[in-house]
Structure formats: C-alpha cells, structure tokens
Amino acid sequence: MLELRLVQGSLLKKVLESVKDLVNDANFDCSATGFSLQAMDSSHVALVALLLRSEGFEHYRCDRNLSMGMNLNNMAKMLKCAGNDDIVTIKADDGGDTVTFMFESPTQDKIADFEMKLMDIDSEHLGIPEAEFQAIVRMPSAEFARICKDLSSIGDTVVISVTKEGVKFSTRGDIGTANIVCRQNTTVDKPEDATVIEMQEPVSLTFALRYMNSFTKATPLSNQVTISLSSELPVVVEYKVAEMGYIRFYLAPKLEE
C-alpha cells in the first residue's frame, strides 16, 4: 500500500511539465527515502533524476518498495486537472496495475480522483558516481532559460566556459556568433538574483541547445539553477524542488571527432 499526500500539489504538476517532453515512459520508485525517478531520453544522451524526499510529504506511507511504470505524458494530462492550490495524494496497492491521483481543493469542497493505468517498463538504471566538479555555477533560473532560448535562435550548440572572469555561453550558426558572459554577482537585494561561480579550474564544454532548452522547462520549480561542469563528464543542471528534493538533468557533452 502506497499513500503519499503532498500539500503543495503544484510541485508535482511542475515536475511533470518539466520532464514529459524529455522522457516518454519511466518507472517511479517509492521507498522509505522518498518518491524518485531516473530515466534517460530515447537517444541515451540526457538523463533526468528526480527525488522528492519522504519528509516533504504531509503523509507518506510506503509499506514496501514499489516501482510504478508510467507514461509521463498521460500522468501530466491527469495532473493538469489538479488546481494549483490543490492537495495531491498518490495512491497505489502493492501489485496493482493502476495508480490513483486524488486532488482536494484547499477548502475541501471539491475532491476528484483520477485512476491511471500503470505499464511495465524495462528501464536501465545507471550508476551515477559522485564526481568532483571543476566549476559550479549557481544563477537565476530565468536568466539561464533566457540565455538558452536566445542562443538557440543563432546556433544548435552552446559552449559553456568558466574562467575567473565568469561564465561564458557561446554559440555559432549560419548567421553569425553570440557570446553571453555572466559575472559573479553576490551584491543583490534578493539571494535568488545572485550569480555565484565556484571554480577549481577553468573548464569549457559543448552541449546541444535542444536539450538545454528542454531542461529549462523546470524553471518554474526554482528561482535558481545550479550548473556543475567537469571536463568530459556530463553536465548536471539542477533545480531544487522546494525544501523536499531536486530534479537533476544530466547531459553528455559533444566531443571533437
């Protein structure tokens, strides 16, 4: 028996909106630790890892570890039917072939339940080693989204370079080139407006903008994004999910042939 009650149901809506275009089907894993997902996109270039810790739920009952295969587009369709202020409860029976999403309005005057069919998914689970990063950039998520969107109108790839001068996003296309430099800025009124660059050594990596733009669909989840870079390692683009967890996107770099 599984029963997870999330008062801030809009978080789950936002999570689904941010992954549904990247991954079609995925297994949600439920354990004492929390509600999690790890899935690769169909071309095995990008990976999404989600963790919503059990402490973040108002009520969290998971009698035994459960893996539920879901079509993310269908799950997003159902969660779209929840109001932004609704409390969302996820319910499933051990060994059952459905999951129920229950939506309660804050005043309890409307209660809806949506039952969705589960599916069997053969998913590969990848071991992600703890890595030391050469550079970690924390910046406003809306700024990062704007940069990725702007650059993708010029080119297909972005070179992200971190030096002591700051972080540079560059692209090149048929019509010309573009460079955007963001410097460290911690003298801001609100902490979410800060740009913080922790650099162990300079690093420069190239990534497909198509994927970066897809990751920025998680922007509504968090005011800040963290971009962790290391030579010839996948970049990690992380958005915190309130106080309860994170959504991390991994993207393999493009390499010189």
């Binding site: 690769m40 071309s43 095995h44 270039v45 990008a46 990976l47 590969e124 689970h125 990848l126 071991g127 992600i128 080693p129 790839t157 190239t206 497909a208 390692l233 996948p234 991994y250 393999a252 770099p253 493009k254 390499l255 010189e256 042939e257």
Partner: peptide, 14 residues
C-alpha cells in the same frame, strides 16, 4: 566536427 557522446560512456548500467 563534433559528435554527441551517449551518457552510457560515463555512467555504467546497474
């Protein structure tokens, strides 16, 4: 010329 590397080069299957 640049080639997109797959993730499985970096992460192993569990």
């Amino acid at each position: 010329r640049q080639e997109q590397s797959p993730l499985t080069i970096y992460f192993h299957n569990l």
